[in-house]
Design a protein around this nucleic acid. Structure first.
Length: 259
DNA sequence: GGCCAGGTTGATG
DNA sequence: CATCAACATGGC
């Protein structure tokens, strides 16, 4: 589901083909091109990464990895729900939210899918109704955020034209939104490619790869990332994140190390 | 059963 | 400012 539309993407030999249900003109795919960020030149982004061995390995391991341009509200809400949850569980919570409080949408195969619930709908729900989607203590954060937006305290659209630090500070006014979640929304929804979300995986990766003999705290690591990875640091973050989870990650999960 | 998961918050030194 | 427990819920 992208911006309330159903779309199916299929990977084939020559690339990806798309089929969609849309009220827009049938041959107008600008919304999808925008979402997939096909205008971004990947190799020039990759060339802006630091040329160390880890980044080189991450690039060759993650050929073709791109960032999406997601909708601010859906992205913000999803990452508010992400704290101390495993990725599969976050997906489950979001799926429940959509099924219960989203709009039903037909696919080309006449299946029913559900859009992400609107800000108004979330704000109107009780905390108990939200907790039924298994989000636990995150429920008041989500509801509070929706209410702030409805009251006009923060305007999600106006963030598009702010500079990155102002935008980050604006996002961090929401309950349940700290530095990491704010950076995720800056990167994945607003296209601030400098934003570098530091989560537990990246923290572990940076310590392991760039400070193998030292013990920098999270603050030091953040400081390091701000200057080291360059103008497309957010892309570098995704390459490292994916590299870490698919390669290195599996190895130390069998052991029990807290680096 | 204990530990941990794409963190944030509010209370303490 | 730095540290730390608490916060729901589920999987291994």
């Amino acid at each position: 589901m992208i911006r309330g539309r159903w779309v199916r993407l299929v990977e084939g030999r020559g690339g990806i083909t798309a089929a969609a249900m849309t009220s827009a003109k049938a041959d107008d795919w600008t919304w999808l091109i925008e979402y997939l960020q096909l205008n971004v030149n990947l190799s020039s982004v990759q060339q802006s990464f630091p040329a160390d061995d880890h980044m080189k390995k991450a690039i060759s391991d993650c050929r073709g990895l791109r960032l999406l341009k997601q909708e601010p509200w859906e992205c913000l809400a999803s990452f508010i729900l992400s704290s101390t949850k495993q990725i599969v569980q976050i997906q489950q919570i979001v799926a429940l939210l959509c099924e219960r409080f989203g709009q039903p949408v037909r696919s080309l195969r006449a299946e029913t899918w559900f859009s992400f619930p609107t800000i108004e709908r979330i704000a109107a729900l009780s905390e108990a109704e939200l907790r039924c989607c298994k989000m636990g203590f995150r429920a008041p954060y989500l509801k509070g955020t929706a209410e702030m937006i409805l009251r006009g305290e923060v305007n999600l659209e106006s963030i598009r034209t702010m500079d990155v630090s102002t935008a980050r500070a604006e996002l961090m006014r929401f309950p349940g939104v700290g530095r990491k979640v704010a950076d995720c929304v800056l990167l994945f929804a607003y296209g601030f490619q400098q934003a570098f979300p530091v989560d537990v995986w990246i923290l572990k990766a940076i310590k392991q790869l760039y400070f193998p003999r030292r013990r920098p705290n999270a603050k030091k690591v953040l400081k390091f990332t701000e200057s080291y990875f360059g103008p497309n640091a957010g892309y570098a973050q995704q390459y490292l994140f994916h590299y870490m989870r698919t390669r290195i990650g599996r190895v130390d999960r069998s052991r029990n190390d807290k680096n």
